[in-house]
Design a protein around this nucleic acid. Sequence first.
DNA 1: GTGTTTGCAAACAATTTGCAGAATT
DNA 2: AATTCTGCAAATTGTTTGCAAACAC
Lengths: 128, 128
Amino acid sequence: MNLKHSRQRDSILEFLATRKDHPTADTVYMNVRQSFPNISLGTVYRNLTLLADIGEISRIRLGDGVDHFDYDTSPHYHFICSECGGVFDLNMEVTDTLTKAAQENFEGKIEGHVTYFYGRCNNCNPKH
Amino acid sequence: MNLKHSRQRDSILEFLATRKDHPTADTVYMNVRQSFPNISLGTVYRNLTLLADIGEISRIRLGDGVDHFDYDTSPHYHFICSECGGVFDLNMEVTDTLTKAAQENFEGKIEGHVTYFYGRCNNCNPKH
DNA sequence: GTGTTTGCAAACAATTTGCAGAATT
DNA sequence: AATTCTGCAAATTGTTTGCAAACAC
């Protein structure tokens, strides 16, 4: 399974690199279409999946029913706003304390954990 | 939006109460069908959604593309086996340390977090 | 030239919904 | 009697896939 170069794939990756808000496949599609009017949603999905598989990007599942994609593959936490659905990076350390604590009373092998935070983002949180 | 009694709903809730493994809507459907052969998947979904909305059960999203449902609504963590897909409760304390840490450098309002662990369950983990 | 990638459309899986009739209060 | 709930089927949403042509090496 050798990779060949593809201008569409480049464009998808390039677009993702400009965004900090973890767009969905559809958002990627809408935007990449400006450079490739004939690109299909299928191609976008295929490439996002491929890029995620080879570790160039990461796929984020936040329980909102849609996959988000992140150009930044370094370990970090996410926040999702219950109001507007926006996704933000959190500026905090990633710890394995939780994983260790979980392992203590569990017989299988715990390899990691997924955590995301929810609430109101700065825009949606009413000030008083 | 007043509730009326329904034997189907009872049966769904009753079935969920017997299970510790957080079944999916389809599993609920398969089982409840033994008492209500004519029950439809739509009814199962409608009732699971309703029960989750009023807080009688909880809906768990573990990023495997399917919703799981849990009769136990008390806060606790879940483990999902990457091998067999099985879901287990973890015997560990739920802490808000993480939420507090996350709040520190974040301008919005963090209301909570979702965490689940993954790895190999006892059955799927090769011994040596 | 061989093999990968694309665009298109159809397929798929999980879930939701519209509607007329049945059950509950 | 009024309203909620059900079964059924169709609709929706997000994502994947089969295929012939286009592209990359």
